[in-house]
Design a protein around this nucleic acid. Structure first.
Lengths: 249, 249
DNA sequence: ATTTTATTATGTAATCTTTACGCAAAGTAA
DNA sequence: TTACTTTGCGTAAAGATTACATAATAAAAT
């Protein structure tokens, strides 16, 4: 029901004339091609990487591009993102999230194209690429250059999203092997956040959250004392996760 | 430069044939009309409100709709959001942020329309509406019903965004008068987060952040002991804001 | 005038969290 | 054996959060 306290009947007018033919209305709208771009982060040898292909546009010859495709006419946005990933990499067991929509009119040389960026993270070792077309491969995030379109900006925004997100959600465990040492976990956080942390306090923090399962196994083939291996207790996390009340800025 | 460590030249193929006519490429893409919808939150009499108009579609007769419009052909997304707000309300001094894009193929009865949702917050008293077409007015968020399109879902997502955001950024001060009492500030947080907080701890928290300027003025025309008035020190906040390292989930 | 009521302002003690370190134990390499 | 690196565990000080107590101030009721 309308909140009449703030309705101003003297000034307020109802819609002039109701539109019946909604089909004609929508057909009269200017339309824009929509693409989906996937920013897939991976972690390997202590380096954060992103999955790219060669652009197949002449004007971006030699430049690198995100995994993207045009949105199908009857396709959901999420659905399209999963399809792009499957078609380009053969992977189908990855969690994607919408991050931001980029609509600068000049972002595509062939005319206006709006893209919705999706982001995901995965363990490079556990997700073997099955398709290598257009030189698909992992690039170290730190040394990216020669990006086509506005894809550098898209990646930058997704990286910021990742930095924020990894502090509040257990995303990190998608980037690690199922069994990992605390050192590997810490290296991942340090690489993504770009900070150094105290080993002992990092350990204490994770143990106090109490979502790590001690596997009573140890690292092998390391040139020093092997660390214990853990896995993340996703079930327990789902039941006990923080409700997030805490003003702080 | 490509990270050759993960490039697989045996399997990897360069693009078959580079596309020269990008204009023809883009013209061949199916296109979708894009709209911008603005979710404008306001706070008045301890109630969180959202600004709505009557839908002018016959099939949604009597239902309520967000402030939206079609994206102009050469318009930036952000630009369009500010235009919509200005055209519908006459307001031009409000900060808008992109929240999410909604692309369900069935969300508009006239055919596929994708909308990019923008969100803002403002002090109802300080932003007098200058246009009242289509019964534009504030609705209490709690008792919303009869929403057109998927606008209930859009509002729900923006409300979640707001709840998260207000805990990490000083958004609340856009919803309050410039001079406010601690009680007003707390009421706002309680209304948005839907929780009760301890008066004394709330005060302590805000004083310890040290972004409130004590104006040495007092509330007037309140039926009890008047509280001190403060304003938010945006300059100091910009210099000292938290760098946000703190894993917690 | 005095009392009652509502609300502001301030304080304090107990608990939990974070930070900055110290040091022994377990492997590897010289 | 000895040096070196890294893991694992611990602790004390500082800081933040929580729960609750009480005095002060203004308006309204008696």
């Amino acid at each position: 029901m309308p909140n009449t306290a703030t309705l101003n009947p003297a000034k307020s007018k109802p819609p002039e004339k109701l539109i019946i033919d909604t089909g004609a209305l929508v057909a009269s709208y200017p339309a824009v091609p929509i693409t989906i771009d996937c920013v897939i982060f991976g972690f390997e040898e202590n380096v954060l990487k992103v999955l790219l292909i060669r652009s197949d546009l002449k004007c971006y010859e030699g430049k690198w591009s995100l995994l993207g495709d045009i949105l199908g006419e009857t396709e959901q946005l999420d659905e399209a993102a999963y399809r792009v990933l499957l078609q380009r990499t053969g992977m189908n067991d990855v969690f994607l999230q919408q991050v931001k929509t980029f609509g600068n009119p000049g972002r595509h040389p062939g005319g206006r194209v709006i893209t919705v960026a999706y982001c995901s993270l995965l363990n490079i070792r556990h997700h073997e690429l099955k398709i290598y077309d257009n030189e698909l491969h992992w690039h170290a995030l730190k040394t990216l250059e020669n990006m086509a379109f506005d894809h550098q900006e898209v990646i930058d925004e997704c990286y910021k999203w990742l930095q924020k997100r990894i502090q509040e959600h257990p995303l990190a465990f998608n980037l690690l092997p199922e069994k990992f040492s605390l050192r590997e976990l810490q290296n991942l956080y340090e690489a993504i956040l770009g900070v150094e942390m105290d080993r002992r306090n990092f350990r204490k923090k994770f143990f106090s959250m109490d979502f790590l399962i001690d596997l009573d196994e140890y690292e092998e083939n390391v040139p020093h004392r092997p660390g214990k291996l853990y896995k993340f207790n996703f079930e327990k996390y789902e039941l006990n996760k923080k409700k997030w009340i805490g003003i702080d800025f």
